[in-house]
Simulated scan of single mutants.
Amino acid sequence: MVKARVYIFEVFLFILALVFLSPIYIMVVNSFKSRAELYENPLALPTSFSFEYYIQAFEKMNFLSGFVNSLYVTVASVVLTVILASMTAWMLARTDNKWSKTIYLVFVATMLIPFQTIMMPLMQSMNWVQTHLNIPMMNTHEGLIYMNVGFNASMAVFLYHGFIKTIPVALEEAAELEGCNKFRLFWSIVFPMLKTITVTIAIINIMGVWNDFLLPSLVLTDKSLRTIPLSMFYFFGEFTIVWNLAMAGLTLTIIPVVIFYMFAQKYMIKGITAGALK
């Protein structure tokens, strides 16, 4: 009876997996077809596998430029988020007064605010900064990175804060007695102990920043600055009728994410497990 239940459950999971993977199957299969073949039967396998449409999509959506732009924005945003959020969380966790508690609660509260409710005031504020203070916030990668760090900091501080609370204060006190200053204390003793949660935060932010479309679409206007999601959007809009090129472009877009997730999956599971145990 138990074996029968397990078998039925496994069959159910297999069918569910097929349902979730069916859009990917349709996308990949149709990326190799001609337009006539695609309209004839979208679910059938192509008569021949050719990378002709991938080459055309690669060139038309300027994939290499979008990839470099996305890589720069993602790496810079995640590195700055990890550095600033970890230091902020450490100071808030180790400072026991009403101001530190208030600041921490502000960080937590901002996690509840949807981006859509503040995106227009944000753009107006950034335009004002650029116009009156001559700081290039709009239509620059650096401005986008600045905003990414601001939006990702709340979650990172929240996760770091909870993890730091589990680290014995005695370790830090012993280091201070040995003459270790604050800077060295954090980077030589505390931060290495945050490896598990740091990897988890980095993975979550990498996936979020890399796949983000809404914020880059508001900030970046020049074609040379577009990230991969923006390149795919404009490509899809311009070549909507050419579905085989669109499918090839979509496949190219998800390949970096799939490769990254394959390598990062075990670290993500470790981080989530460690966070649950903490």
Rank of each mutant, 00 (worst) to 15 (best):
A264Q: 08
V2G: 05
F183Q: 08
K266I: 12
N41S: 12
L64P: 00
L277W: 06
S125E: 01
F32E: 03
Y267E: 06
Y7D: 03
M232D: 03
E172W: 03
W128D: 00
G249I: 04
Y54W: 11
K33Q: 09
E178D: 15
A174N: 14
V11E: 00
T88K: 07
F63V: 04
V2R: 11
T95W: 03
M232K: 12
L71G: 13
M268H: 02
V209M: 04
L245A: 07
D212S: 14
K195A: 11
G208S: 15
L214M: 15
V29T: 13
E10L: 10
N148W: 12
P229H: 12
S50Y: 05
T117A: 10
T221Y: 02
M61W: 03
N127K: 14
T95R: 15
R94A: 05
L185Q: 09
E238Y: 02
V11Y: 05
A44N: 13
L218F: 09
A36R: 12
V19Q: 05
L13W: 08
I254M: 11
L245D: 00
I83T: 12
F191M: 14
V75Y: 03
L277R: 07
L38F: 10
E173T: 09
I272K: 11
I145A: 04
F191T: 09
M232I: 15
M111D: 07
G271W: 01
I167Y: 10
R184F: 03
N134F: 09
A174W: 08
K165Y: 04
I204H: 06
R94Q: 12
F233E: 04
K182F: 08
Q265T: 06
F263E: 00
A264V: 10
E176G: 12
V19G: 04
T166I: 07
L144C: 05
